[in-house]
Simulated scan of single mutants.
Amino acid sequence: MFTGIIEVLGELKELKKEGENLHLTIATPMAAELKVDQSVSHNGVCLTVVATDSEEYTVTAIDETLRKTTLGHLIPGDKVNLERGMQLGARLDGHIVQGHVDQKGTCTGIEEKDGSWIFTFQYDALQNNITIQKGSITVDGVSLTVVDSANSHFSVAIIPYTYEHTGFKCYKLGTEVNLEFDVIGKYVARLLGKSSS
């Protein structure tokens, strides 16, 4: 379980293919505090630490994860949004994030405002995921509030701190991102779907 509040940007140092699995080695000051078997969110994808030292750690993504997320597109040097699992009793500053990506989305708009940015993302509405205005959405592991919501796209407002301390500063038109829709909204949508059938 995560909050969507990114702790640090890591740097992908190495990719190693083993069968259908992909081992990702990431450099971050946080590595010294990690231990094997610990869960860490990587651009919104929960992965388990399999090796660690004082400067780097390694996680493994299986084929299904690579197909359903953007992790397979990463190359050495890319920045990765990192968050450790939420501690019991800690403040929930973002929202409830599972680290289970629902689908990928594409950046279709970047508008610079006076002190902030509006990012628009499009997604496949046929997968029955929804957003609502002022509801929560997770983009590459970042907990955000939806500004505008439509059937197949939504926008979010990014403050300078978030822009500088997450991968948002690297996004361009066409950038693919991992989307996790609000878990409470998913349960409500499922219940309403069942009750109307």
Rank of each mutant, 00 (worst) to 15 (best):
residue 87 Q to L: 13
residue 72 G to W: 07
residue 101 V to C: 12
residue 70 T to V: 14
residue 61 A to W: 03
residue 55 E to I: 00
residue 86 M to F: 08
residue 44 G to V: 02
residue 23 H to Y: 10
residue 98 Q to A: 09
residue 89 G to P: 08
residue 93 D to L: 09
residue 82 L to W: 00
residue 33 E to W: 13
residue 49 V to W: 03
residue 32 A to F: 06
residue 100 H to I: 09
residue 77 G to V: 07
residue 36 V to Y: 10
residue 27 A to F: 01
residue 60 T to V: 15
residue 73 H to A: 14
residue 104 K to Y: 10
residue 32 A to H: 15
residue 34 L to F: 04
residue 104 K to G: 08
residue 42 H to T: 01
residue 31 A to S: 02
residue 54 S to P: 10
residue 66 L to C: 05
residue 77 G to D: 06
residue 64 E to D: 14
residue 72 G to R: 03
residue 76 P to L: 14
residue 40 V to N: 05
residue 42 H to S: 00
residue 90 A to T: 10
residue 40 V to L: 11
residue 30 M to H: 02
residue 101 V to K: 04
residue 79 K to Q: 08
residue 104 K to I: 15
residue 106 T to E: 10
residue 62 I to K: 15
residue 31 A to D: 05
residue 84 R to W: 14
residue 24 L to P: 01
residue 39 S to H: 04
residue 21 N to K: 06
residue 51 A to F: 11
residue 72 G to M: 05
residue 48 T to R: 10
residue 59 V to M: 15
residue 99 G to W: 03
residue 24 L to A: 03
residue 82 L to R: 00
residue 86 M to K: 04
residue 36 V to E: 08
residue 78 D to C: 03
residue 68 K to N: 13
residue 64 E to S: 09
residue 104 K to Q: 11
residue 82 L to Q: 02
residue 103 Q to P: 11
residue 32 A to V: 14
residue 49 V to K: 00
residue 97 V to A: 11
residue 89 G to A: 07
residue 70 T to N: 14
residue 33 E to Q: 15
residue 56 E to Y: 00
residue 102 D to E: 04
residue 75 I to E: 12
residue 63 D to G: 14
residue 26 I to Y: 01
residue 67 R to Y: 05
residue 24 L to C: 09
